[in-house]
């Protein structure tokens, strides 16, 4: 079952007199449980594509259908609710809330979903255990390494039990050891919990672990390979 579908997706920007086609007629389907890397050089349009899939940006034309819902038709508030329910985000710069502890950062998403205190506590502890941070629950982001912060970000992305996780250059600021550790965790979650991951990256270490690699250039899909890993 396709959890993500895009049909003739376009996103253009006006730069003076010039029209920039950041995403130019992309048709893409991502099935539940896939571990997909969207790759391409800087400026190829992969982050714009990820933003459109995540509902952070509106397409100029075409449509994005997430779990059967055409999200470009949603209002701003409905879109925020939709993201909260269906999409987990992992950003390049971790983007944790600096004044909350690791556990509170994970719980925060569930608080927005109005989950009970007990459920929030249990799931945040369970997720942080799963990403190997069971002993860092009460640490604030400033007290964690980059790799640890990104693992908290992964736990936060999974907290709302999303349909899939979008990760934009999640390893860009990590060393090799932290990258390997993070990818192991994501791969395990993909294998064991059938969680769908979509990465926008040009990190070869991520590409090497992906089961499907979609290459984007000049806003178009240049190649789409499924790999047997």
């Amino acid at each position: 079952m396709a959890v993500i579908e895009t049909h003739n997706l376009e996103r253009t920007y006006q730069d003076g007199n010039q029209v920039i086609r950041a995403v130019d007629g992309i048709d893409l389907q991502i099935q539940e449980g896939e571990f997909t890397a969207i790759v391409g050089p800087s400026g190829s349009g992969k982050t714009t594509l990820l933003n459109l899939i995540g509902g952070l940006d509106k397409p100029t034309s075409g449509e994005v259908i997430i779990a059967g819902t055409p999200i470009h038709e949603l209002s701003d508030n409905a879109m925020i609710d939709f993201r909260l329910k269906h999409i987990g985000f992992v950003f390049q710069a971790y983007n944790l809330i600096p004044v909350l502890t690791a556990a509170e950062n994970v719980e925060f998403i569930m608080l927005l979903q109005k989950k009970s205190k007990e459920e929030r506590r249990q799931r945040s502890h369970q997720l942080l255990e799963a990403v190997g941070l069971g002993d860092r629950l009460t640490k604030r982001p400033g007290e964690l390494s980059g790799g640890q912060q990104q693992r908290v970000a992964v736990a936060r992305a999974l907290a709302s039990r999303p349909s899939f996780v979008l990760a934009d250059e999640p390893t860009a600021n990590l060393d090799s050891h932290s990258t390997a550790n993070l990818l192991d965790i994501m791969a395990r979650l993909n294998e064991e919990e059938h969680m769908t991951f979509v990465f926008a990256t040009h990190d070869q270490r991520v590409i090497d672990r992906a089961k499907r690699v979609v290459t984007v250039e000049d806003g178009k899909i240049k190649s789409d390979e499924s790999l047997d890993r």
Binding site: N95, L112, Q113
Partner: peptide, 9 residues
């Protein structure tokens, strides 16, 4: 970021 991850305005 907060709006992206689902915090209403």
């Amino acid at each position: 970021i907060l709006i992206s991850i689902g915090m209403k305005r």
